[in-house]
């Protein structure tokens, strides 16, 4: 990571509840502009909850956020999207009844500028040529891998400053996982900052500059990816050796 890069997203001591269950105790993290940051952890560690809070779907009970130097606490999901934080949710959540084209169009909805959204489409097709062939098809008829491509492509249509990916490799064949991660690297190379939640710690640490490890709603470790890879507890718990 370029060490002098300023943080694009700062999360300060977030606490969040689902009903009465405390899901996040105190999570703090920083995502430097232009970097890829990974959140690792077992199921139920609070990774997805952290992302829900960042995208405004879940209100934290305490803590604060900054995006690009501005406080963004309490912003609605649509306002956060307009500010440039765009999430690809877990399980893709594409609009199955709509066509691929309509899904992509909605990705650019927040920009209120269809012309600008159209300019974005060629870039998306560069990453995922298969989407161009399937434009008129109902998104529900796509394969799992194609649906993940559509979910990422749809998010890119908003031209995010921070692209938030929740388990992009979940349920995909190894070939497709590789392709998705190749595209994540390309997206970053094109200047978009990425925050990534991933079960596949190997792939995540390969692509990320920095990673945070969550356990039961707390950050227990954070470091540069290369350094984390050497840590005994990470090797044992997440890398399987």
């Amino acid at each position: 990571m370029p060490s002098g890069a300023r943080p694009l997203l700062v999360v300060n001591e977030i606490e969040a509840y689902y009903g009465r269950v405390c899901a996040l105790h105190s999570v703090s993290l920083e995502v430097a502009e232009g970097s890829v940051v990974a959140l690792l952890g077992a199921n139920g560690a609070g990774k997805t909850t952290t992302l829900r809070v960042i995208s405004g779907l879940l209100r934290p009970t305490s803590g604060s956020f900054e995006f690009d130097g501005k406080r963004i606490d309490g912003w609605s999901p649509d306002r956060l999207v307009r500010a440039g934080i765009v999430q690809v949710p877990e399980g893709r959540q594409i609009f199955a009844e709509l066509t691929v084209r309509e899904n992509l169009l909605l990705g650019g909805y927040a920009r209120r500028d269809l012309g600008a959204a159209r300019q974005e489409a060629p870039r998306v097709f560069d990453y995922f040529p298969r989407l161009r062939e399937r434009l008129q098809q109902r998104a529900g008829t796509l394969s799992g891998g194609e649906q993940q491509m559509l979910a990422i492509g749809r998010a890119l249509m908003a031209r995010p400053r921070l692209l938030v990916l929740d388990e992009p490799s979940l349920g995909l064949a190894p070939m497709l996982v590789k392709e998705i991660f190749r595209v994540i690297s390309e997206i970053r190379a094109a200047g978009t900052t990425v925050l990534l939640v991933e079960q596949n710690a190997h792939m995540a640490l390969d692509v990320a500059d920095r990673a945070y490890v969550l356990e039961t709603g707390r950050v227990i470790l954070s470091d540069r990816s290369a350094a984390l890879r050497q840590r005994e507890e990470v090797r044992r718990a997440y890398l399987g050796h």
Binding site: S55, G56, L57, S76, P77, D78, V81, R82, V86, Q87, P89, Q93, I94, F95, A96, E97, L98, E102, L105, L106, G107, Y109, A110, R154, A158
Partner: peptide, 20 residues
């Protein structure tokens, strides 16, 4: 209109598209 159909199908995902 397309956004309304999206809201009908999946409110959470629609919110993540920046649809109010």
């Amino acid at each position: 209109g397309i956004a309304m159909r999206a809201v009908a199908e999946n409110r959470m995902a629609a919110q993540l598209m920046g649809i109010s």
